[in-house]
Amino acid sequence: MRDNKECCPYCNADLKREPIPKESQKVYGSAHFIRKIGINSIEGDRIIKWKCPDCNKEWDRD
């Protein structure tokens, strides 16, 4: 079963990309690049939603 952090919950598109080079993984906090788009909150200066680049649907971060 796929984790929703790596797949779109609507169209099930694989959002996981190529591996991040080992020397840069600590900076990115992940082992792979991810295609999902973060939607920012200006008031809170944080990502509040994700958006799928394939179907353009959004879902809550939490």
Score class of each variant (00 low, 15 high):
residue 58 E to D: 11
residue 22 K to N: 00
residue 3 D to P: 05
residue 40 N to C: 10
residue 4 N to S: 15
residue 46 R to P: 06
residue 27 V to T: 10
residue 2 R to D: 03
residue 42 I to C: 10
residue 54 D to Y: 09
residue 13 A to R: 11
residue 14 D to N: 14
residue 15 L to P: 06
residue 38 G to K: 06
residue 12 N to K: 08
residue 13 A to V: 05
residue 60 D to Y: 09
residue 16 K to S: 03
residue 20 I to N: 04
residue 22 K to I: 08
residue 5 K to N: 15
residue 51 K to P: 02
residue 50 W to L: 09
residue 7 C to L: 10
residue 16 K to E: 01
residue 43 E to C: 00
residue 43 E to I: 07
residue 7 C to Q: 07
residue 8 C to H: 09
residue 9 P to A: 14
residue 7 C to N: 09
residue 5 K to Y: 13
residue 45 D to S: 12
residue 20 I to L: 07
residue 22 K to A: 11
residue 22 K to P: 09
residue 20 I to V: 08
residue 7 C to S: 13
residue 47 I to M: 13
residue 37 I to K: 07
residue 13 A to L: 05
residue 50 W to I: 08
residue 29 G to I: 00
residue 17 R to E: 01
residue 51 K to T: 02
residue 55 C to V: 02
residue 13 A to D: 03
residue 25 Q to K: 00
residue 44 G to H: 05
residue 3 D to Y: 15
residue 23 E to Y: 15
residue 23 E to Q: 14
residue 32 H to C: 11
residue 46 R to K: 12
residue 58 E to T: 13
residue 44 G to E: 03
residue 2 R to M: 03
residue 48 I to H: 08
residue 7 C to F: 13
residue 11 C to R: 11
residue 42 I to Q: 12
residue 49 K to E: 05
residue 41 S to P: 04
residue 37 I to H: 08
residue 59 W to R: 01
residue 18 E to V: 14
residue 44 G to Y: 05
residue 9 P to I: 15
residue 57 K to G: 06
residue 11 C to Y: 13
residue 21 P to C: 03
residue 27 V to K: 00
residue 29 G to Q: 01
residue 28 Y to L: 14
residue 14 D to V: 05
residue 34 I to V: 10
residue 41 S to Q: 09
residue 51 K to W: 03
residue 37 I to W: 07
residue 44 G to T: 02
residue 44 G to R: 00
residue 54 D to G: 00
residue 57 K to A: 07
residue 9 P to K: 13
residue 28 Y to M: 12
residue 1 M to F: 14
residue 58 E to M: 12
residue 61 R to A: 13
residue 42 I to K: 12
residue 43 E to D: 13
residue 55 C to P: 04
residue 30 S to L: 09
residue 14 D to C: 13
residue 55 C to E: 03
residue 15 L to S: 01
residue 44 G to K: 08
residue 7 C to M: 04
residue 34 I to T: 01
residue 57 K to R: 14
residue 59 W to P: 04
residue 38 G to H: 07
residue 2 R to F: 12
residue 24 S to D: 05
residue 23 E to L: 15
residue 35 R to T: 08
residue 54 D to S: 00
residue 25 Q to P: 04
residue 11 C to T: 13
residue 59 W to D: 00
residue 31 A to I: 01
residue 31 A to C: 10
residue 50 W to H: 04
residue 40 N to T: 04
residue 52 C to F: 01
residue 29 G to F: 09
residue 62 D to N: 13
residue 27 V to D: 06
residue 3 D to N: 12
residue 19 P to V: 03
residue 6 E to Q: 06
residue 1 M to R: 15
residue 23 E to I: 15
residue 42 I to M: 09
residue 47 I to D: 11
residue 1 M to G: 15
residue 25 Q to N: 03
residue 30 S to T: 07
residue 37 I to M: 03
residue 53 P to G: 02
residue 32 H to V: 11
residue 6 E to W: 04
residue 18 E to L: 14
residue 14 D to R: 12
residue 41 S to A: 02
